[in-house]
Design a protein around this nucleic acid. Structure first.
Length: 152
DNA sequence: GCCAACGTTGGC
DNA sequence: GCCAACGTTGGC
């Protein structure tokens, strides 16, 4: 089993939206490296949900992969801002897995708190200039973050 | 709103 | 294949 962290802007889609929907297709990702990670997600993988572009930014809860990545719908939809003229049904370019809500933390485990943690310094999230919206995290990092979150 | 960092595009 | 220009991300 692998562990991941995905970013979302809560104004667009928040952990509360996920809690309401129970399951959602993690779509609209338009970055090749992030897409490649989405395609690596396997059933049952654990996913941390991170709220970005908000004050304070931070990890807000957990989800799990309930369906491995499949061709994303918006790339074929002419009316969508995520329409991709190059993508075809035979040769789709973008993929999304289904994520299932697991839990919302008691608060926001703030980016600032993660930065202060020695064992988390290797996280992609904390790397200088990192903008990747889908990232692998180690099982150790996952456990530490869960432990910190349990104190919120 | 600013801006550093990064990714993509497209002319050559 | 280079690289300048442009667009986006995301913390602050």
């Amino acid at each position: 089993m692998h562990h991941w962290l995905v970013k979302t802007e809560p104004d667009s889609y928040s952990i509360d939206d996920l809690a309401r929907d129970k399951v959602t297709s993690w779509d609209h990702v338009r970055n090749y490296q992030a897409r490649n990670y989405l395609r690596q997600m396997a059933l049952g993988d654990q996913v941390m949900i991170y709220h970005s572009s908000v004050v304070p930014p931070g990890v807000v809860g957990l989800a799990s992969v309930s369906r491995a990545a499949y061709p994303e719908a918006a790339q074929f939809d002419r009316s969508s801002r995520y329409f991709d003229p190059v993508a075809t049904k035979e040769n789709p370019r973008w993929f999304s897995p289904d994520l299932k809500f697991q839990q919302r933390f008691g608060g926001v485990l703030e980016l600032q708190a993660l930065k202060g943690h020695k064992e988390l310094q290797e996280m992609v999230l904390l790397k200088r200039g990192s903008r990747l919206s889908v990232q692998p995290i180690s099982v150790e990092e996952f456990k530490i973050i869960c432990r910190l979150a349990s104190k919120l």
